[in-house]
C-alpha cells in the first residue's frame, strides 16, 4: 500500500511539475506556446527526457514504429499523434481490341466427349472438326496425288473429314443495342476505343 501511494504521489508530482512549467511559459509569452495547449494538456509525458514524442532520439520513434516520421503510413503533422492509412483502390483495366478472333469453341476441345470440357461450355455444337478436302476434286491435282490415285485407286488425300458445303450455320444479326465503346487504360493499353469510325458509303 505504501508503495502504491508513493507511486501515485510521484506521478502527481510529475504532472504538477509539467503543468507548472507550461503555465510559466504561457505567462511569459502566451502567443508563442498557445498552439501547444491541447497537446501538452492532454499528454503529461510530452515533456520527457528525450525532448518530445517525435524526437529522433526518442525510443518511441522507432523507424519501424507505427506512425513514426519515417513510416510510410504516417500522414499526420509532426505533432499530431494520428496517422493516415493509405489504401489503394484497384483500377479496372480495359484492354484494347484483341488482335485476333479467339473463340474457345473453335479449338474443337471437348470433341472427344470430355465431360470436363462440356461442363465448362467448351464443347462444340458440330461434329465435323476438320474439313481438309474440297468436294470439287478437280480443284486439286498435285502430281503426288495423281500418282497416288493411279496406284491405290483412292483419291482421298488422307484428311479424314469431308464436310458439307451447305453446312454454313445461321449467324443471326440481332443487335441488342447495349454495346458501347470502351477505352484502354493501365499498363497494357496503347490503343483506345478509337472513337467514332464510320464505314465508307456502300
Amino acid at each position: 500500500m505504501q508503495v502504491e501511494q508513493k507511486e501515485e504521489q510521484t506521478a502527481q508530482r510529475a504532472e504538477d511539475y509539467y503543468e507548472d512549467r507550461f503555465l510559466r511559459m504561457r505567462v511569459e509569452d502566451r502567443y508563442r506556446w498557445s498552439t501547444l495547449d491541447d497537446y501538452y494538456f492532454s499528454n503529461a509525458y510530452a515533456y520527457n527526457s528525450f525532448g518530445n514524442y517525435y524526437s529522433l532520439s526518442s525510443p518511441w520513434n522507432s523507424y519501424f514504429a507505427w506512425n513514426c516520421h519515417y513510416n510510410p503510413y504516417y500522414g499526420g503533422l509532426s505533432y499530431y499523434p494520428g496517422g493516415v492509412i493509405i489504401t489503394k483502390t484497384p483500377k479496372i483495366y480495359t484492354p484494347p481490341s484483341r488482335a485476333l478472333v479467339f473463340n474457345p469453341a473453335s479449338y474443337n476441345v471437348g470433341g472427344n466427349s470430355s465431360s470436363s470440357a462440356v461442363s465448362k461450355g467448351l464443347n462444340n455444337s458440330y461434329y465435323n472438326r476438320y474439313n481438309n478436302t474440297n468436294s470439287n476434286r478437280n480443284s486439286r491435282n498435285s502430281l503426288g496425288e495423281s500418282i497416288r490415285k493411279v496406284f491405290t485407286g483412292n483419291d482421298n488425300s488422307g484428311n479424314y473429314n469431308s464436310g458439307s458445303n451447305n453446312s454454313t450455320p445461321s449467324r443471326s444479326y440481332s443487335p441488342s443495342s447495349s454495346g458501347g465503346s470502351s477505352g484502354g487504360g493501365g499498363r497494357s493499353s496503347g490503343g483506345g476505343g478509337g472513337g467514332s469510325v464510320s464505314r465508307p458509303s456502300r
Partner: peptide, 10 residues
C-alpha cells in the same frame, strides 16, 4: 457499334 467497340477483335 462494332466499329467502335473494344470487345470485338480488330
Amino acid at each position: 457499334e462494332i466499329l467502335s467497340n473494344n470487345n470485338v477483335s480488330l
